[in-house]
């Protein structure tokens, strides 16, 4: 499974989000590839991501994509990330 962690530039917030998503998924025992990308990549028609993790301010800009979009309010809160990923994967 492919998951995108998205931010404006694809180098800061998204990398932090990817890093924490990786740790949460490993703890959950879920095999997934998390990639840090820019908004443009997430919107791209070639996007293969099943799930997109994003900060709420950017959510509006990617609402029409095929991937399931999950807004993360606090990217340092591993529990929030785990709860939302668990809900999305079940």
């Amino acid at each position: 499974m492919k998951i995108y962690a998205v931010c404006g530039a694809g180098i800061g917030t998204s990398v932090l989000l990817k890093s924490n998503a990786d740790r949460v998924l490993a703890a959950m025992g879920v095999e997934a590839e998390v990639q840090a990308v820019s908004i443009a990549d997430a919107i791209s028609a070639e996007s293969l991501a099943q799930i997109v993790l994003i900060t709420p301010e950017l959510q509006e800009q990617i609402k029409d994509i095929r991937s399931e979009v999950i807004p993360i309010d606090n990217i340092f809160n591993l529990e929030e990330i785990e709860q939302k990923l668990t809900a999305a994967l079940s």
Binding site: C7, A9, I39, T55, E57, N74, I75, F76
Partner: peptide
């Protein structure tokens, strides 16, 4: 893009592309 780099309560990480 708006204040999207406010990533947690009370905490921002201001940045641009490399």
């Amino acid at each position: 893009l708006g204040p999207y780099f406010v990533v947690a309560p009370g905490i921002a990480i201001a940045h641009a592309a490399p």
